[in-house]
Design a binder for these strands. Structure first.
Lengths: 223, 223
DNA sequence: GCAAAAGTGTTCGCAATACACCCATGC
DNA sequence: GCATGGGTGTATTGCGAACACTTTTGC
């Protein structure tokens, strides 16, 4: 039994405008479900690893070399209206929204949607987005994922709002800042915000080198 | 481009004899790599979800209805000696070793190997086993996986030795017991070990109902 | 009585939680 | 001067970590 293999991309970004996690959806240009909002992706048509296929699809949709790409799950598509055996492998990608630069001729076909207010999605794209979100939540407990979704320099409160959006819980500002200041890999920069009509915030940055050292030193606790 | 799709099963069990995690390998009956120890599995040849295929392969190899089956990863097989496009989806399965009952005509073809002393495996089966082990370690932090690998009634010290094998670290007996006794879903039974030439241990059991209640009540901590 | 593993308590330090007010800027 | 979000400290509590000896059984 032979399968056509598709790759679905769950492209995630954090929108500082409304403090929400967003997913990029495209309007399908072909049947089935033509015209509906759905996950970008396509068939694997090169003899290459799926992650390479996903990275290419992604570059086409976003115009950006992706920083973080991770497999979520492989799905057998059991939709009986499809006449072929299909399987799909889902990847989620993390993006700094500010770097999003779609090909100009595709702009009208792609749009960001809040994870909390998704439209109805065709096929099993809805559950796939949820699966990706959950994987991202788990990944963030052991890897520095927030920094792929934020600008290089960011205020601490933006980082807090990101965590609040990721886990959908409110966090205490003082405790959060105390926690972050204990992380050796989040460094204060000399820069401040400018042109804001309030007290300007200090900008912080992620240090990959410090993170590597920290990760190496940190032992797994068994339970 | 069309693919043949295979399912690989990483069948894991805990051996109380030597306190080691074991994986079930089979001797390949066909080329390529005929005669070598490798992961059981096979091609997806029914229009069904992969997990169903995996469960069937598993039942054929172990004679047991599996308690726990989880997808690890989907792999594109890039081995150039293979003449077809192949992809495989790996699942790990958890088994109580005492229930392992292979079909009699297959016994000589299957054997348990310690995760820490694996033979050289063909294709990418070595990395797949490692990936599965790591996924199991992660799953055990948020789900009650140990109880799929232990007998229904077990002494606490066996549970401790399981954790030591899973994470490859020694644990302090008093702290471990204190921790377990704080878990509402591990209950003491009235039974004791018998016929052991030492102080008999009390047997404990896992309560799925208590676990559900506990899991519902436990909030996620965000970071 | 000896071998072998089961079982038991206390202290310490750190990290998570709860909680409310002052500060710097643009307009 | 006021609106807006940035920034700060302390007390409490619970949990993980370190650490050594007694108990029960079969032989």
């Amino acid at each position: 039994m032979l399968f056509k293999l598709a790759v679905d991309c769950i492209i995630l970004a954090y929108d500082p405008g409304d403090n929400q996690l967003k997913v990029l959806l495209v309007q399908r240009e072909n049947e089935p479900a033509k015209g509906q909002w759905a996950l970008p992706g396509g068939f694997v048509d090169e003899p290459e690893d799926f992650v390479v296929t996903a990275a290419r699809k992604l570059r086409q949709e976003t115009g950006v070399a992706v920083g973080y790409l991770e497999q979520v799950h492989a799905y057998a598509l059991t939709d009986p209206t499809r006449d072929q055996r299909l399987a799909s492998v889902a990847y989620y990608a993390l993006l700094d929204l500010a770097h999003y630069a779609p090909a100009a001729d595709r702009t009208h076909l792609a749009q960001w949607f809040s994870l909390t207010q998704l439209p109805g999605l065709p096929f099993d794209h809805g559950p796939k987005v949820q699966d990706a979100w959950q994987r991202l939540q788990e990944a963030a407990r052991s890897r520095p994922v927030p920094f792929y979704l934020l600008p290089q320099k960011f205020p601490l409160n933006q980082l807090q709002r990101f965590y609040e959006a990721l886990y959908q819980v409110p966090l205490d500002n003082r405790n959060f800042r105390k926690w972050v200041k204990g992380l050796p890999y989040v460094e204060a920069s000399a820069e401040m915000e400018t042109n804001v009509s309030r007290r300007p915030s200090k900008l912080y940055r992620f240090s990959a080198a410090a993170y590597e050292a920290f990760a190496k030193a940190t032992q797994l606790t068994p339970y």
